[in-house]
Simulated assay, not measured.
Amino acid sequence: MNAKRIFGLMLVLLMLVALGAGCAKKTADSMPAGATKVEISDKDTDWQQPAPAPESRALTDDEIRAQQREQAQRELGNMIFFAFDSSELFPESRDVLTSKAETLKKYPLFNIVIEGHCDERGTSEYNLALGERRAKAASEFLNQLGIGSERMTIVSYGKERPMVDGHNEAAWSKNRRDEFKIQN
Rank of each mutant, 00 (worst) to 15 (best):
L104V: 04
F82S: 05
E125S: 13
T98G: 14
E120M: 08
K181I: 06
G122P: 03
G158E: 02
A66P: 00
E150A: 14
R74M: 12
W47I: 02
G158W: 01
D85E: 14
G77I: 02
N168S: 13
R65N: 13
T45C: 03
E120L: 07
L76W: 02
V17Y: 00
Y107C: 13
K26E: 11
L59I: 07
I64Y: 03
D44R: 13
R94A: 09
E55N: 12
G131S: 11
D95M: 12
P32G: 02
R133Y: 11
E75T: 01
Q144M: 12
N2P: 08
Y157F: 15
V12K: 01
A3R: 14
F180M: 03
S149L: 15
G22W: 10
K4P: 00
K26P: 15
N175H: 05
S30C: 04
L104T: 04
H167T: 12
E70T: 10
W172G: 01
I154C: 03
D44L: 14
E75A: 06
E63M: 06
G34I: 06
G116V: 13
R177W: 01
G146P: 06
S86Q: 06
A58P: 11
A58Q: 15
L145S: 07
I112F: 07
R161F: 04
K26N: 06
R121V: 15
S56Q: 10
M163T: 10
V17C: 00
F81M: 10
T60N: 03
M10C: 07
H117R: 15
I64K: 15
M163N: 10
L14W: 01
E115H: 14
H167K: 10
K37D: 00
A72C: 13
V113A: 13
Q144C: 01
M152Y: 08
F141Y: 15
G20A: 11
D165K: 14
S41E: 09
E39Q: 15
K174L: 14
A83R: 13
I40R: 14
P50R: 06
